[in-house]
């Protein structure tokens, strides 16, 4: 009986140790978490940045870049550069992302490497491992009435899509 207990505990301990060592959060190098926005600086109108979300940490806000880019990127302009991430080991396999960054905003995302497909990858891929969004919808073509997005400040509003919508463009 003692041997049974020993075998069971050793097995479980081994499993836990192995899995813990494999459990650190995968990092996608070079790309920040999708913001491409540097913080700091301007506030909006006199009342300061408005609605905090739960746990808003920084008092400052930023509206981000100066350009208002629409539609597709064809080739790089002077402000743009590519950033190629290292191969990141995500839970679904190796992924490598390449970004086109313009004025601190990510304007294009390409997937250079995806996990190869066992049938399990395919099965979970239908839910979890997402395909990249292939269509980018130009606001002008979508005939929308309003835009929902991360809260912009008054300054940010000017660069936002909502401006165009509000102007009836």
């Amino acid at each position: 009986m003692r041997r049974v207990i020993l075998a069971v505990t050793a097995t479980i301990a081994g499993l836990v140790a192995l899995l813990s060592f494999k459990s650190h959060v995968p990092a996608i190098a070079a790309a920040t978490s999708g913001t491409g926005v540097s913080s700091g600086g301007t506030s909006g109108s006199g009342s300061g940045s408005g609605s905090g979300a739960s746990g808003s940490g920084s008092g400052g806000s930023s509206s981000g870049g100066q350009g208002f880019a629409t539609g597709k990127q064809t080739g790089l302009t002077a402000n743009e550069h590519t950033v190629t991430g290292n191969v990141a080991n995500t839970i679904y396999g190796p992924v490598q992302i390449q970004l086109v960054v313009k004025d601190n905003k990510i304007v294009k995302v390409s997937v250079l490497q995806q996990p190869s497909n066992t049938i399990h990858d395919i099965q979970i891929g239908q839910f979890a491992f997402p395909r990249l969004i292939a269509e980018t919808l130009a606001a002008q073509n979508a005939k929308i009435d309003s835009v929902s997005g991360a809260t912009y400040t008054s300054g940010g509003y000017i660069q936002s899509l909502q401006t165009a919508v509000d102007k009836g463009i």
């Binding site: 999708g34 981000g64 969004i133 929902s148 997005g149």
Partner: peptide
Amino acid sequence: WRIGIAHPLRSGSLALV
């Protein structure tokens, strides 16, 4: 109503409507 959802990574684009 049609509400566009801004694409967080491609500024100026929509992800969905």
